[in-house]
Design a protein around this nucleic acid. Sequence first.
DNA 1: GGCGTCATGTAACACGTTACATGATTAG
DNA 2: CTAATCATGTAACGTGTTACATGACGCC
Lengths: 190, 190
Amino acid sequence: MALEHAILVSLLEKPASGYELARRFDRSIGYFWTATHQQIYRVLKRMEDDGWVDARDVPQQGRPDKKEYSVADLGRAALSSWLHDPIEPESVRHDLAVKIRGAAFDDPTALIREVERHRQAHRDRLAHYLAGQARDFTGPKAPTAGAQAPLDAERELQHAVLRGGIAYERMMIDWLDDVLATLARFGPGR
Amino acid sequence: MALEHAILVSLLEKPASGYELARRFDRSIGYFWTATHQQIYRVLKRMEDDGWVDARDVPQQGRPDKKEYSVADLGRAALSSWLHDPIEPESVRHDLAVKIRGAAFDDPTALIREVERHRQAHRDRLAHYLAGQARDFTGPKAPTAGAQAPLDAERELQHAVLRGGIAYERMMIDWLDDVLATLARFGPGR
DNA sequence: GGCGTCATGTAACACGTTACATGATTAG
DNA sequence: CTAATCATGTAACGTGTTACATGACGCC
């Protein structure tokens, strides 16, 4: 399981409250890991109990106070040990692929609109990733001066992961084009 | 949830026992959906209770008897209704991407071997898919004569899904090459 | 005699999703 | 005054994983 570890990475990049983490999981971290706020609060509580993270109450003006979490030594050690532990390459789970094979036993052309919807969603995500790349990973190499080496690793690796997301979305768009061409061959009316 | 529906598709392609289904989920269906035998037995039981599948005892020689399941009318209807129900495009979950971002807070070069292992696994899968494609989707269009139109749809759509798997593995291999090049930039010794 | 395959299951637990709940502040 | 955002949580349920269990047959 990696939600704990995804949270640790995110907190190392910048301490945050549960709420802020949840929003990050809708954005950058969400490129390759999703989680709802309920899950995050539950896991965060366990991590606090286990001493992986420290909580600090931060009073705010005009807003509810928040509990800001940062990574404790135990958490850093847990992350490090996980990083050194080999994991199995996962296999994908694609509802859409199940549908495509299932369409052979129903009307194949009925799936066309669904596939088009998915292709559009992937186009949107691609555009979003490309905008993020242009915003965060072009121009001057280091956004802050000083302490360059470690910052560079963080940025470079974040960028490498983002390039993976971009490659994934491009592949999906091309494949869905292919699927649409295949479905179209079964003609309107069949 | 789509395990039920993946089972329905698989049983429509060919009736099978729980055990045989479990093995299919290690192979062709497993390209895009995984499930262990425990899950399959549990779901199969529920599907039988709900009248989605019919079970038939098949005595065998030199082997334990098996329960062969086939799709009932209710199951066909359930699949059809699911096919017409739009689903949300899922987001991916990549432990490896978490590790890559996490490596910035540990020794980045320690990840190289892990990434190489994953790249090899994806190369193996790609080779496996390509072999399957050569075996099942080249040469004469229909493997059996007669009843062509529906058989063609089944084959064509299976092939389209397999092409997706191939595209996915190629993308992953390329991306992991990219990641390795990035990790290597942090040099041996830093 | 031991290991691998065929075949089916139970039980406990971990993880993920959905719905519900509360309460303050700010923008329209 | 209504809706959205910030902030944290509980409860119930569904799905997925791991471990354990049984038993027959065939191969070395």
